[in-house]
Design a protein around this nucleic acid. Structure first.
Lengths: 339, 339
DNA sequence: TCAACCAGCTAATACGTATTAGCAAGAATA
DNA sequence: TATTCTTGCTAATACGTATTAGCTGGTTGA
């Protein structure tokens, strides 16, 4: 019933067990052997620790560069979503599962205010180092912040490929290049020879990869591949495709793909125009309209990020840049070309 | 650019500027006024700081704050759900929002394995005390664990009312009693006089409250109120209601309410039998079938839990047991009684 | 009988910063 | 000329833990 005020410290434990603070620390950190503390003493101290539920202050431990079995999770946006089918949740599901398996607790950096829709990684009161390392998630990440993090030697892994000139950034990304190539080949196998890429194909690495995979496959297979900006109405894009003779739309952004597919459906053009979604083909689909394309292995990416981060923290050798293959989704919107 | 070995500290700055470490700290933290450091000294030190790019170690800065600004979140089940409309997410949404507002980070205790579908609060190596305090969420909580936590003086708040004989358990719960009373009154206003409570009305506090609110209101208004166990097929419950002359079903469990409402709908009995869901009336409803009843203010409960916990941690006086009013949901399944 | 040795522990210090108490030298006051 | 006040700073300490050096009292060896 002892209402202890404030945090329990090693000094408290020591007093309760009738030993010195140093003894407590030694026992907790395996230095007891070397210091020749008797097993009786050890047991006595451990009993007190268990009875009180004492855990070392993570701050004080980190001052000595010790670990706390704590993985940070930094998201540029709120972790817990309002929207139903949220983009982040599957990643976090995987992260949670793997953290549990490896015995880590998760530290969500929610103390940084979300400003203009995103959080800042660095602040005066940055608490990143409370965690042993950190997983960084977010569609748009700040390259400079990441480079600085890497330069500081802080262990972290980003979800999504990030390249930097001066620093090697550890990541778990998706292999957009290969899967896009495969989809182009599949379109080819279904008789299509004129493809239209809907998107900018520039900006984030993931976008460049899609465009590159598309271009390469088109070239290899001797097809015709055009590109059009996505910032126009679906109907206009469809007009362009029909006018140019394209029979498949490769959509960079999945939302856009769904809009296009619905428009195609409404206008009963599905026999003349196929739609491929380069991402979220499964999760964004409607029951009545299954998009063709691919889906990121989000949960597995989360798991892999934890494994990689854990390896980095524990100084085990590990591949720091990993690309996982997205799963192709057959769906209904990529069809055999009709003559 | 001199990559000095180790981190640049205030001591280094002090040496370079020819002052004491304390002076550097004071200048950085605005204590310079009070310590009457001359503006020349201030400028000299600031110049050195700018030249070297020194930044204070945030960890060391926070060492002698009282707490670590860390709130634990303990869930008996995994935090990140697979299911779409998850029970916990709204709580966590509120918790995250309020944690952000108050400058707390969140610690998820994922290192405890989920066994038989739930986690254990206490283990040999409980890490609860890593956090300054903890929010406990879960439908079924272990009373003994909570009582022990309270006895230990560890700051925590549970979501959901928990009563204990010997310890006062802090909670943020829902006021089932009042809202159930109100719903009975509403049924009465709509002409109903014979009500059937579907559920056990015992077990968790929240169930007892519903039953009590129901019973009291029925007595006060001079109505007839029966009770039937929920563990039978919807059709059977409906038979019983019709046979006994009841015209409203008060369903303890929202899932059951939905099943009953659908059955009523299918059998075209909705003019003769109303259904009230005592919980999740909004979130569980189908677009085609809006349940009548009430909905917990989950997000607000999460927010309130953080506020209460924060107050407890900081030793501010605060109401430790709070009941929030659920929102009533009109819906389609509670109708005027037809003669 | 004294040195050497060992088991079993503690004192002391470091980590990097914040903060309080207080010191030294000169200026103002009586 | 002695006292108080003021200015401008530093010494000391605290935060909680990790680690190293070293102390004490007993046993062994010669």
């Amino acid at each position: 019933m002892a209402r202890t005020k404030g945090r329990l410290t090693q000094r408290d434990i020591a007093k309760l067990a009738g030993v010195s603070q140093a003894a407590v620390s030694l026992i907790l950190n395996g230095g007891a052997e070397q210091a020749r503390l008797s097993s009786e003493t050890r047991e006595r101290v451990m009993a007190v620790i268990q009875g009180t539920g004492y855990v070392a202050d993570p701050l004080a431990r980190q001052m000595h560069k010790k670990g706390n079995q704590l993985l940070g999770v930094f998201t540029y946006e709120p972790v817990f979503p309002n929207a139903q089918a949220d983009f982040y949740t599957p990643f976090l599901l995987g992260i949670e599962g793997e953290a549990e398996r490896l015995g880590y607790d998760l530290l969500l950096f929610t103390s940084t205010p979300v400003e203009d829709g995103r959080r800042k990684l660095f602040r005066k009161e940055s608490r990143l180092r409370l965690a042993d390392g950190c997983i960084v998630i977010g569609r748009e990440q700040d390259r400079d912040e990441l480079a600085r993090l890497a330069a500081d030697g802080y262990p972290f892994v980003t979800i999504g490929r990030r390249d930097d000139d001066s620093e090697q950034i550890p990541y778990v990304g998706a292999d957009y290049l290969t899967v896009t190539r495969d989809l182009v080949r599949r379109a080819h196998d279904l008789g299509h020879s004129h493809l239209l890429y809907v998107g900018d194909g520039s900006g984030a690495e993931s976008l460049m990869d899609r465009w590159q995979g598309f271009s390469e496959a088109v070239a290899t297979l001797g097809l015709t591949g055009d590109r059009t900006a996505p910032m126009v109405a679906p109907s206009e894009i469809i007009e362009r495709a029909l006018a140019s003779g394209a029979t498949v739309l490769f959509c960079e952004v999945a939302d856009g793909a769904l809009a296009l597919a619905r428009e195609v459906d409404t206008r009963r053009l599905s026999s003349r125009l196929s739609v491929v979604a380069m991402g979220s083909a499964a999760s964004l689909s409607l029951p009545s309209l299954q998009l063709s394309g691919f889906e990121l292995p989000r949960e597995e990416m989360g798991r892999q990020a934890v494994r990689t981060l854990s390896a980095i923290i524990e100084n085990r050798s590990v591949e720091r840049q990993i690309l996982l293959r997205p799963n192709t989704v057959d769906g209904q919107t990529l069809r055999k070309r009709e003559q």
